[in-house]
Every structure is written in structure tokens, then in C-alpha cells.
Design a protein around this nucleic acid. Structure first.
Length: 908
RNA sequence: GGGGGAUUAGCUCAGUUGGGAGAGCGUCUGGCUGGCAGCCAGAAGGUCAGGGGUUCAAGUCCCCUAUCCUCCA
């Protein structure tokens, strides 16, 4: 895009208002007022569109777990997908946001160009069937040029429109009064969303767009993209663009780009919220930031990546081997590698986290709350990466030695690719090391090998880009959701508003004994749909002449889905039912859920505030809780955490809950997870004065109702994350009783009191070990010794020859005997054999002198083994064989004598 | 989701067509010795991740499982 227009010099004689400032490098045009801060730009934008009736919405999370089609939020419109698709009942029809985004498509350009980032912020305004092209264009123009807002000189601005979008062109020309030379018409590859959609697809919602450019003396910057989604594409051209009944506006204005224009700097990395970070990166790397140097590029990359990772880790996305976690790991390692190539040999990246937090504190004050943990996670990953490099260095040293030995001068691309894919060793570093040893590095071969690796890894599973439509969508248009009454009651009188069988809405079901569960939606319900880790309720729906058994409850948005089976009668749309939750089951779930909160508190008290929840699952008197901790818990840790939880249960602290605006909950210090997007009003569950958590789940009235809490497992789920499994109430009691029972059985077997069992078992284990050793020492050694065997030896050609059966001789014993004979005297050749059930074992050994003469123990023992239906082999001085016919052992020994005579006769 | 690799003494690791489980550091014992990883001698310590298979014979080859590392999507 850069440079598509000639510099906008029309109508000026190249002087006055456009004179580039010569004082500060990078300042291309003089500002009429002090350069606008990025924070101010962000706020002005949102305020401006609020004044146009848009609802100001907070940024969605960076990692939208609710949206399986993306790993990270890629654009401002992402949180409004369902709004655009008409899938939800709208609470507002126009909105404005500043959205944090992360994209890795252009990752290789980051640092090299002025405008590429992985992490960035996007200003946007959105219309869902409300205002359209005229307002969108007029407002964009007003915001950019009005003295009250950005006050950019109109002469510096141009627009582009889609070639067939006469409507947009007309607005720019006739209403905004841009000269026709400043309105460029572009094809579908540039000015259509999705790019190339009319001819290439995909089918679905699409539309032309219009971009606004700002021109400096050296080039132009695209600062705003207005997308007019007005068509539904159906099939191939021609006439495949059907007008949508409801037209939408989706706009995006890059915050960093726009700030760079307002601040008159030549790169996004030089605006007020980024340049200090780039310079801080220079500081921790011990160099001064020079924008034009190779190191300058590296510092910009470090700044970009550390910003991205800080936000992602803030939302609990730790570096790891899968999906979004892997993206973060790669970003971190790239940044660390840049530091390494600048010359750093120790951890440094984590030192930049405070700077990120400081520069972003106005829009994202919550970063402060996790800064320590974020820095810790980054430091850990840095240190892992350095270990990876160290381990790789050993391997590479070995490779270099081999290469020198064999006279090779080029590091093969395959070797480099193997070092990278198997051991994580970066090729850039490999190349540097190779150069130091005067080896050539084969980049071409490396790339080819990596491409091959990509093919072999396969495409994996393709993520579903568009969620398939669901019958629930029809309900979503009609009502906001199911009214959940399960906090106060376990039984309601409800009305059936939806019956879904195999993904289709039905009017009634009368088939009793159907296989697949069917789904019932009610207007109100006491059933808790699975969410927040708590499993769904079970129970029954009973109405006039029918009974429906609910085996599970799920949630879809704000709807509760009752899954189960019709047991009798006919269930109809509109029928009145008594919805009744299985109270005993729910009670167990509630005990486990409240215990989870108590456990969370105890973990943080005992291990430190970093031990934050990473995920949980709550079932009937059973819970699984994942939390951040760098090392396994000791038995003492577990014991004292368990004690702490049980003490808080015994204290019988009251449990209260209330709903309040999220800001108020934050003020109260309620524990919240930053990877979640919370509604405007949140539910806060408080226990005594020790725990306050945002939580939608169901809880006890008093912690004492938990009964007993018992930890039954502690394990690792990922680097830096541990998992505790625990049980509560009756289940905990049963478990303890079972263990008591098992212990009693063991005590009975040992005939020892329970308390003495450990000592008794230890003594038994030692005894077994000692007996085994003794047995090994005495086996076969009882009757025979090296001396007795030698005494019976015959002399052949100056050598002693021993061929004998050693009853009960195991291979180690026979080897030892042969060793003793060889050490004792003259050159000796010995072959010993023993029977072992239906097998024969043969061991042969010869003195070095005989080996030097060409006698071979392996050949010898093989010759003998053949006589007992086996084979064998080994080294020249010691070999081993086996056979399967013990009866023929005497013949084998005879054969052995012949064979050794033969060999000695031919000895050199 | 897929590819590659690892798992051997308390720790770091070696173990090469399948044939006697090793080194360095650490520990213990004895001796020598004024230093910063002091030196010498000796010893203890292993279900070669677990399970199955091939073989006369498996740390080594094949299959499965677990855990970890690593790359790709």
C-alpha cells in the first residue's frame, strides 16, 4: 500500500504548511498543536462515536476461548460476529471499541517495516443493520479533519473505493467533495472483504470497502478501512452477489498507525507508547537504539513480541507445545534469540514487562495485577530456551568434530533442520557457530528440509471456520435466554419452548426408548447448565401424562439445554412441566464447588499469590483444580493445605453471593481470571472474610456443610501448572474407610499392628534383596571353582583347554569362572555349559594370547550350540550361546572339544 | 491433530551389525594435604521408564503405554 499514491502535493507550491521539520529526525510535518498522545487518540475516537450514538464496549479478550475458529482476536469485529450474522437478539445496533488484537501472519516483517506488529490495537465502529455507508464515510471524515477532533489537513487525505461501488464513490466526490484525483477505484483484491470474494469466494456475507490514506512527503499510510457488508455471495459470477436485507458497517482504524501520523513519526515503533519500550529493550541489551541498524530491527522485534506475550500471558496463555500456547512460546523465543544475537547470554526479556505495564496502564490497568506472574513466566521460558541452546551446543560440538575428522566443510541443511525440529536449536545460531568454525551453512537445504517437515506434519485437523448453524439459533432470535432459578430452588413450574431431536426443532416427541438423547429448552429452569467447570444438573421434567429424565444439562449462550430421554407419554412444545433437579446429586456438586473456592484460598495462602486457578472441573463430591506453581507439591505442602481447608470447613463460615457491576467487584478485590470475558454485572461469591470470587456456580450456605475434604491426587498438567484432585463429603469418608480396610488386611497378613507396617515391609524388602544377592553369589559356585576346573584341563598346543558342565551355572557365574581361569595361568580356552529347565546355556572364553593367534570364542561356542539346536556368538575373547535340547549336551561338549582342537591346530 | 527425539547410578550423560551395565560429579570409608571444584586409594548405589514381542541371547530390534523435550498446523 505504501507509495501507491504520489505524494499529495496538488494545489501547493511545495512550501509553507508542508515543509518538513528539519530539527527532529523522523518528523515529517509540523504539527499545529503538540503531538497527540496515543491514549488521547484512543479516548477521542471512542468519545466521538459515542456522540454518534454508538455504545462503547470494552475490548474483548485477546484469546477468545468462546470462538474455536481463531486462536487470537484478529480484528475489532471479532466479538460482534454473532451480531453481524443476526444470531443474537440485539441489545444495541451500533457500537464502538478499541480492540487488542494479535496476528502472526506477517511475523517475518515485524521490526523490518514501519507498520507491522503482532500485537496491536484496532479502533472500530460497527453498525448492525443501522447506519450505513453515508454515515460511516461522513463520520470518518469528520473525525479525521474536524478541528475539534484530529484536525488532520484534508489535503493530505485520499480515499479508495471498490470499482463497482458507485454509491461510496459518489459520497466521497459529491458530499465530502474530494477531487476525483483523490478517489481511487480499486479491484476486488484490494477493496473487497473478504479479498477477492466476488470471483473466488467464499460464499456468505461480504461487501466492498473503502480505505482512507494519509500522505506524508515520502509515502502514504492506510489509516482506516470501512467495510460495507451488504451482500450474500451465492455461487460463482455473474449475479452471485445478493443484497442483504440488513446491511452492516465494520470499520477498523489502526491505533498505532494513526498515532504515528498524528505524532509525525516515521514508524509505529516511534510513537509515545512504543518508542520508550524499544529504548528500554536497548537498555537491557546494553546498546543504544539506532533505528537504521540491524540491532535496531532486533530491538523493535523484541518490543513487539514482549508486548504481545505480556498481554497473552496476562490472560493465562502460557508458552507451551499446542495452539495458542505454542504461538506465545515462539514469539518469546524469537525475542530471546534476538537478544542472544545482540550478544546477551542471560535472561533479559522479563525485565521489560514493567515497561509494557507502564506504557499500557491507562487503557489496561489490570495488567498491573498480573505483572509479577507474567514476568515470572517469561523468565522461566527464557531459562528453558537457554537450556535448549546449551544442550544443542554439545551436539553441535560433536557434529563439528565429526565433520573435521571426515573433512566435510558444509553443514547439511538436513542436519540443521533436524537440530531445529528435534532439539529446538535455531538455525540462525547454528549458522553463526558454523561460520566460527569455518564451515559453510546450507540454507537452501535447510529450507527444503523444513518444507518437507511441514508436509509430513500434515495439516492436522482443520479448525471449523464457521460454526455450523444450530436449531438454538432460531430460539436466540426470539428470546434472550432461559431464566435460571437454580440458585434459589430445585423445582420450578416451566413451559417447554423448544424440543430438539437430532439437530432439528420438533413440535413434539412421543417415542419412548429412543437412542440418542434429545434436548428440551424451557422458559425457566432450576437446572444448572455445565459452565465454569461445574457439571450440569440431572433430574426430571414431569408434565401431564409424561415424564422426561434429564441426564445432563448444557449451556448454549444464555440458554439451558436439558439433555435426556422421554420415559413415558408425549412431550409437546408449549407444555407445562414441573422441572425437578436431582437434589442429592446437586448437593454433592455444591459441596465440591464450595470446597474448590476454599482450596483456591488455601493454595494461595500456603504457596503464594501466584498459585492462581488455571482451570477446574467440579462434579458430584469430586473436584479437579489446576493452578500455577513451578514445582511439585511436597507431602508436607499437601498435608498442610488439606488441614487448612478442613479448618475453614470446621469454622463453619457463612457463604454469601450477590450480583454487582464488574467495577465494584474489582474494587472489593474479588478474584477474577483475566482470560475470561465477564458480563457487565457479575456474581460474587464470598465465604467468611477469606474468599471472594467471581463465580456463576452453585454453592453451600455454609462452609461447614462440606463435611470432609480429602486430596487424592497431585500431578503435573503442563510446565508450571499443577493439578489437585480431591473429594468431599460422603465420598471422602468412603475413601478413608476403604484405605483403612486395605491397611487392616495388610496388617493381618504381616501379623503386625498398623503403625509398624512401614518398618516391617522395609525389613522384608531388605531381606529379599540380601537373599537374592547371596543366591547369586553361591549359585553354581558350590561344587566347582576355577581351580578344580583347571585341574581337569587338558593341554593342547601349549594351551589349557577346559570344557565342562557346571550344574546350576548362570551366565554371570560361568563368565566369572572363566575370567578367574584366564587370570590364573597359562593361555586358556574354556567353555562352560549348564542346563536350565528345557534350555542350555553355553559360555566360552579364551585368553588374549589365543585371541591374538586367531582363535575365536564366538565361532567356538556357536559350533557347540549347533549340537543342542541353538546358536550364539559374541566377541572373540568371550561369547555366549544357547540351545533348546538339553539331552544332547554331552554331544555338544564333545563337539566343543573337537572344535577347539581344530582351532588351536590352525592357530597362527 | 501430526512429525522428530528422549527416558541408563543421587545429578549430568556415554554405551557404534544384539553377546561381560559404564564415565564425570556427588555420597560414604581410609590415607595424604593449609587455598580456588585439593590429592590418592577403596566402597556403596541400577527392575537400563512400564508392558508385550522377536531371539539361544535385548539397554540395544519391533509394537503398545506413560512422562518429558522439540518442531509444524
Amino acid at each position: 500500500m505504501i507509495g501507491r499514491f504520489p505524494p499529495a502535493k496538488q494545489g501547493t507550491s511545495g512550501s509553507g504548511a508542508y515543509r518538513a521539520s528539519s530539527s527532529a529526525a523522523g518528523f515529517r510535518c509540523p504539527m499545529r498543536h503538540p503531538a497527540m498522545k496515543t491514549d488521547e487518540l484512543r479516548e477521542k475516537y471512542l468519545a466521538f462515536f459515542e456522540s454518534k450514538g454508538c455504545v462503547r464496549r470494552p475490548s474483548d479478550v485477546l484469546v477468545p476461548r468462546w470462538d474455536p475458529s481463531v486462536l487470537f482476536t484478529p480484528a475489532g469485529m471479532n466479538q460482534f460476529k454473532d451480531h453481524f450474522l443476526g444470531k443474537v437478539k440485539l441489545e444495541f445496533t451500533r457500537a464502538t471499541t478499541c480492540q487488542k488484537c494479535l496476528r502472526t501472519g506477517d511475523i517475518d516483517n515485524v521490526g523490518r517495516t514501519a507498520y507491522h506488529h503482532t500485537f496491536f490495537e484496532m479502533l472500530g465502529n460497527f453498525s448492525f443493520g443501522d447506519y450505513f455507508k453515508r454515515d460511516a464515510i461522513h463520520w470518518a471524515w469528520e473525525f479525521l479533519t474536524s478541528p475539534k477532533w484530529l484536525a488532520l489537513p484534508a489535503a493530505r487525505l485520499t480515499a479508495s473505493v471498490y470499482v463497482d461501488d458507485l454509491e461510496a464513490a459518489k459520497i466521497w466526490l459529491d458530499e465530502i467533495k474530494l477531487p476525483s484525483s483523490k478517489v481511487e477505484r480499486m479491484g476486488e483484491d484490494d477493496n473487497f472483504w473478504p479479498a477477492g470474494a466476488p470471483s473466488q469466494g467464499p460464499d456468505g456475507v461480504c461487501g466492498p470497502c473503502s480505505e482512507v490514506f494519509y500522505h506524508t512527503d515520502t509515502g502514504s499510510v492506510e489509516i482506516w478501512n470501512l467495510v460495507f457488508t451488504q451482500f450474500n455471495r451465492v455461487g460463482n459470477p455473474p449475479s452471485n452477489l445478493r443484497p442483504l436485507p440488513s446491511k452492516n458497517i465494520d470499520t477498523g482504524m489502526g491505533l498505532e498507525r494513526s498515532a504515528s501520523v498524528l505524532q509525525g513519526v516515521d514508524s509505529n515503533f516511534h510513537i509515545d507508547i512504543l518508542r520508550p519500550l524499544v529504548e528500554a529493550a536497548g537498555e537491557v541489551c546494553g546498546i543504544r537504539y539506532d533505528p537504521t541498524s540491524e540491532h535496531g530491527r532486533r530491538l523493535r522485534r523484541i518490543a513487539d513480541h514482549v508486548r504481545a506475550c505480556t498481554f497473552a500471558i496476562h490472560e493465562d496463555v502460557y508458552p507451551g507445545p499446542k495452539a495458542e500456547k505454542y504461538v506465545i512460546k515462539r514469539l518469546l523465543r524469537r525475542a530471546v534469540l534476538d537478544g542472544h544475537q545482540i550478544g546477551l547470554r542471560k535472561r533479559f526479556l522479563h525485565l521489560l514487562v514493567p515497561k509494557v505495564v507502564e506504557l499500557m496502564r491507562n487503557p489496561y490497568p489490570e495488567l498491573r495485577e498480573t505483572a509479577t506472574r507474567v514476568a515470572g513466566v517469561i523468565e522461566k521460558e527464557e531459562s528453558n530456551f537457554f537450556s535448549t541452546i546449551d544442550a544443542g551446543l554439545d551436539r553441535i560440538e560433536r557434529l563439528f568434530r565429526d565433520m573435521s575428522k571426515s573433512g566435510r566443510v558444509m553443514v547439511a541443511g538436513e542436519e540443521a533442520a533436524d537440530m531445529y525440529t528435534t532439539h529446538g536449536f535455531p538455525p540462525e545460531l547454528f549458522e553463526t557457530l558454523a561460520a566460527e568454525h569455518n564451515f559453510v551453512f546450507d540454507w537452501q537445504g535447510y529450507r527444503a528440509a523444513m518444507e518437507q517437515h511441514g508436509i509430513e506434519s500434515g495439516a492436522g485437523t482443520k479448525t471449523e471456520l464457521f460454526r455450523r448453524s444450530h436449531p438454538i439459533d432460531a430460539l436466540k432470535k426470539a428470546m434472550h435466554g432461559t431464566d435460571f432459578r437454580g440458585y434459589e430452588t430445585l423445582q420450578t413450574q416451566s413451559r417447554v419452548v423448544g424440543i430438539i431431536v437430532q439437530d432439528k426443532l420438533c413440535d413434539f416427541v412421543d417415542e419412548v426408548g429412543h437412542g440418542q438423547p434429545i434436548t428440551i429448552v424451557l422458559d425457566k429452569t432450576p437446572f444448572y447448565g455445565e459452565s465454569g467447570g461445574q457439571v450440569g444438573d440431572a433430574g426430571e421434567l414431569v408434565g401431564d401424562g409424561f415424564r422426561f429424565e434429564v441426564i445432563d444439562s448444557q449451556r448454549d449462550g444464555s440458554f439451558v439445554l436439558h439433555l435426556g430421554h422421554l420415559r413415558s407419554g408425549v412431550i409437546r412444545q408449549g407444555a407445562t412441566v414441573t422441572a425437578r433437579v436431582d437434589g442429592e446429586r446437586r448437593a454433592g456438586i455444591v459441596r465440591a464447588h464450595s470446597a474448590t473456592h476454599i482450596l483456591h484460598h488455601a493454595l494461595r495462602k500456603h504457596l503464594g499469590q501466584h498459585a492462581q486457578q488455571q482451570g477446574s472441573k467440579v462434579d458430584r463430591d469430586w473436584l479437579r483444580f489446576d493452578f500455577a506453581n513451578p514445582r511439585p507439591l511436597t507431602r508436607e505442602d499437601i498435608r498442610s493445605i488439606e488441614n487448612n481447608v478442613n479448618a475453614l470447613i470446621t469454622a463453619a463460615e457463612p457463604v454469601h453471593w450477590s450480583t454487582m457491576p464488574i467495577a465494584e467487584a474489582r474494587k472489593l478485590g474479588a478474584m477474577m481470571l483475566f482470560g475470561e470475558k465477564y458480563p457487565d454485572d457479575v456474581r460474587v461469591v464470598a465465604m467468611g472474610d477469606f474468599s471472594k470470587e467471581l463465580c456463576g456456580g452453585t454453592h453451600l450456605a455454609n462452609t461447614g456443610q462440606t463435611g470432609l475434604f480429602k486430596i487424592v491426587g497431585e500431578e503435573s498438567v503442563a510446565a508450571g501448572t499443577r493439578r489437585i484432585t480431591a473429594i468431599t463429603g460422603p465420598a471422602a469418608l468412603v475413601k478413608v474407610q476403604e484405605q483403612e480396610e486395605a491397611l487392616a488386611e495388610v496388617a493381618a497378613i504381616l501379623k503386625a499392628p498398623a503403625a509398624e507396617i512401614p518398618a516391617r515391609v522395609a525389613a522384608l524388602a531388605k531381606e529379599v534383596r540380601d537373599l537374592k544377592k547371596q543366591a547369586a553369589r553361591t549359585a553354581g559356585g558350590g561344587e566347582v571353582s576355577a581351580e578344580t576346573l583347571l585341574a581337569e584341563a587338558e593341554s593342547v598346543a601349549g594351551a589349557k583347554v577346559v570344557v565342562a558342565e557346571v550344574s546350576g551355572g548362570t551366565p554371570p557365574v560361568m563368565r566369572q569362572l572363566i575370567d578367574q581361569m584366564r587370570r590364573k595361568g597359562p593361555p586358556t580356552a574354556a567353555l562352560l555349559a549348564s542346563r536350565e529347565q528345557d534350555k542350555v546355556v553355553l559360555v566360552a572364553g579364551i585368553s588374549r594370547e589365543l585371541e591374538a593367534k586367531g582363535v575365536h570364542a564366538g565361532n567356538w561356542v556357536r559350533a557347540a550350540a549347533e549340537a543342542v539346536g541353538g546358536s550364539g556368538g559374541g566377541r572373540a575373547d568371550m561369547a555366549q550361546a544357547g540351545g533348546k535340547e538339553p539331552d544332547k549336551l554331552p554331544a555338544a561338549l564333545e563337539k566343543a572339544r573337537e572344535a577347539i582342537h581344530e582351532q588351536l591346530a590352525h592357530a597362527r
